[in-house]
Amino acid sequence: MIRRTTTLQHFLFHILSILFGLIFVVPIIWSLIASFRPENLVFAGLSPLSIKALIPLPFTMKNFIGVFTNDVFSSALVNTLVVAAVTVVCGVIINAAAGFAFATINFVGKGILFSIVLSSFLMPPDVLVIPTYNLVDSLGLIDTRIALILPVVGNGMVIFMFIQFFSQVPKALREAALIDGASSLQVLSKIYLPLTLPTMIGASLILFLAQWEAFLWPLVVSRSIENGMIQIALSTFTQQYGTLWGMKLAAASLLCFIPLILLMPLQRYYIASVVGTALKE
């Protein structure tokens, strides 16, 4: 949007942006810094408010060491990474395959199956957690890694992303390959998938974040320490006699910097994927 703006307006834009920016940045930066202070000084400088709150002194790594040696949290971290990795790899493959079929093949029942896929991602997932618990219970899968992975892998939104991308690939490209004797599977893996790197990155991020941020589903379905997921494991630092704030903030910082490090360089793909599916409905 171009507009001839006055200095006063410029000034206002900056003030407003800085205000929003501070609200977004301060909690993250403060908790990172505070988690490098010893437990009894975590809240130093907050009340009364002083610059001490933003200085990591006396410096200690104790909280981070504590987090990594904490059984509940460290096994949840490992489990979450495994669950997320399996979800990303399987999710990208099977959703791309489904998107490929929708975009390139003419088949019986296409309309119905497409509306099922579409309605599945318009329905907020948390609403079905309790009946899904019933289902998983009757399958005998409560408190298993499989139960954490399966419901998240098939993802209507990701299928939709691939449909959009694949329908832009020229039909002639596919037909030429088929005439040359390639199978559909080869067309997908040799021609379509290599073209679709941005969509695959976007899809991977969406699936990764779905598991990284999972809360309600692991809350009801996981019981044992090995099947714990990190967002739930955060509560392990709140104990009967009080909260270990230093460790809790160290863990929270880890939970927020790991995805941010992934998202920052790849934000373009993530945003294009999320927004793309929405605005082309």
Binding site: I94, N95, A97, A98, F100, A101, F102, I105, L113, I116, V117, S120, L150, P151, V153, G154, N155, G156, I159, S184, L188
Partner: peptide, 9 residues
């Protein structure tokens, strides 16, 4: 092609 993803959905 559809079975795994659509089946899970």
């Amino acid at each position: 092609f559809l079975f795994p993803a659509v089946g899970l959905i």
